[in-house]
Amino acid sequence: MNVENYLMYGVMPIICLALFFIMMRFFKGPQIVDRVVALDLLITIGVGFIALFSLITDNPVFLDVAMILALIAFLSTVAFSYYISKIKKK
């Protein structure tokens, strides 16, 4: 069995299933904080998705994108928490 084939048909579906569950939570989430956590996890799993994709296509350039995405996930969570604390204070 080839590594690329195994990653494409064995590991990628598991991650897609995980993304599906998180999207369900993202649409369902009763409060805004639930949605923020779901979004943070979505972006973090996007990093893993990109790493797997760079493994499959044998191209390490994609890891740069993963790095930037990891940065943006942290920034967006901090910004959202600041925003929520501001609007709920009024």
Binding site: I14, I15, A18, L19
Partner: peptide
Amino acid sequence: LGALFILIASFGIY
């Protein structure tokens, strides 16, 4: 292993 951990996390959040 990594994919299984991610699946557990997503199932937990759901």
